[in-house]
Write a protein that binds this DNA or RNA. Sequence first.
DNA 1: CCGCCCGGCGCG
DNA 2: AAAGCGCGCCGGGCGG
Length: 599
Amino acid sequence: MLRVRRRDYGGEVIAPPASDSGGHRPRPGWCVVGVLPSGGIGAVDVSADGQTGDPVELSHEELSTYVSDRETTHPPRWVWSDTAHWLPSLLTDGVTVARCHDLRLCHAILARSEYTGTRQALVAADEWRRDFEEPEVAAPAATLFDLEVESADRVTVPDGLGAALDEFARQRAALASSGGEARRLRILLAAESAGALIAAEMRSAGLPWSASEHDRLLSEALGPRPATGTKPSAMVELATRVEEALGVRGLSIDSAPKLLQALRRAGIDVHSTSQWELMEHEHPAIAPLLQYKKLARLLSANGWAWIDEWVRDGRYRPVYVPGGVVTGRWASSGGGALQIPRRLRPAIRADEGWTFVSADVAQLEPRVLAAMSGDRAMAVAGQGKDLYAGIVESGAVQSREEAKLAVLGAMYGSTTGDAGRLVPRLRRIYPNAMRMVDEAASAGERGGVVSTWLGRSSPEPGPEWADLQARAQGNSATSADETRARRAARDFGRFTRNFIVQGTAAEWALAWMADLRLRLARLPETGGVHAPASGPAFARRAHLAFFLHDEVIVHAPLDQAKAAAAAIQDAAAAAGELLFGKTPVEFALEVSVADTASK
DNA sequence: CCGCCCGGCGCG
DNA sequence: AAAGCGCGCCGGGCGG
């Protein structure tokens, strides 16, 4: 825990003494934090009308105390350059913040959004246009091997107080010029920033991971852990069976070109070694080869080396990258956090005295589409049930499988195959929903920009795309030019078609998690023998442990599981209302409580 | 020898 | 070699 000398930071001016004896909570202001020229940290309050208070100077050690004190009375919204930069050290000191405004992430949204009134000043401030950087690991004094040299020339967003104040002012001005769309943008910025808090908190808490269960699952599939550099026994055996079936010896089964050659020599007419193509053929080599590929994938992506690299003290700590995908979805870096194979889910194991409350949204994307397009028929199809079942009931298609194929086809822009055949039926029964995605596609085909419900806008096509279109329009255009241009136009149309749905679903999920996080924060800290002795405050009660596009896993003390499940449900309802107001669309959750995350 | 591309496959 | 969106990671293979 943090133990620092208290310094007089003018607390009575900035943080009035707590007289908070119940319900009343004034609208919190903003507190901008940044590095001062002196090397210390400055904190400045900014009021709703843009007035700035006197800066407070703090040492790095004092920042945690300062933040913690203000969080206990009337927490401001902390404004800082980059949550991944500022939050980890606070969490290390046991300090949690309720809300923040992440200047880097908000800049990215506002500088590109169609809803932003005046963007020029933001676009010009391109020092704020930076991709995510790995959070700096608090360097424990000087070490023998200086790892910091590497990070010295990293280009990140500015961390100075002056720069933060300037950028915050630009963003506020941009919002002020956004007229009726400012409300949506404000919600989006708050949700995006909450996501940044959650990402850092989840990394700090880690996902409870049982290395022994993981090892057991690996051994079950692959045989016992082999010596480094040698293949597991199950793979060796399967490779031998493939060789025998193909009638070759010394096959380099891991080399796609060599494997392809061997397959073709054995009379299997394949053009690649991918599993979907192999499955189309009858040959004794196919089954063991497919099984070999499954195991090879498991070993290379999530084998014993993965455990060694990523699991420490019973926790897997991936780096989540909020806003890492253009649509607003999160990305991840390190360990493939968003691609953990389902067969390894049993290794996600709750601590003693704790359990998991897992929830995922059933058919989030079509529900979001129904809400944003105001398609009543599609909303009704999802009421009180599986949305695909509702579509079958509507008579548009025969089976649940067809319904799913048709809906995915509608959102991804299928034109051929079974999906392409089914989509027109949806167009008749759900005209509003389909018009919305069709118009997004047509905007993209013209090289235009589309936006999500809250105002995250799509990137424009690159210069090569425009060149392609221009060439096809020119006098000397060949039919090949035209074909290529049309293909590129359609490709981009499918991207924008999907963008509005995937992006709005991501917004709903952020709103869901942001609300859930604050609900969980109101639960009491857990006591008893299983209470963690240290670590951030939020991890001493039910807290978010994992997030994957439309599902969350909450790690909860046993006696808080019920409350956590209720919070998840309530947060989903709140997210739907925050985004869409009163809507007939239901966001149906599947919630389960279990010691592992397997389903 | 290194960096990059790409096939292949895991997730939604 | 996917039809039909968005990702990250791995290993092989190739160019420099």
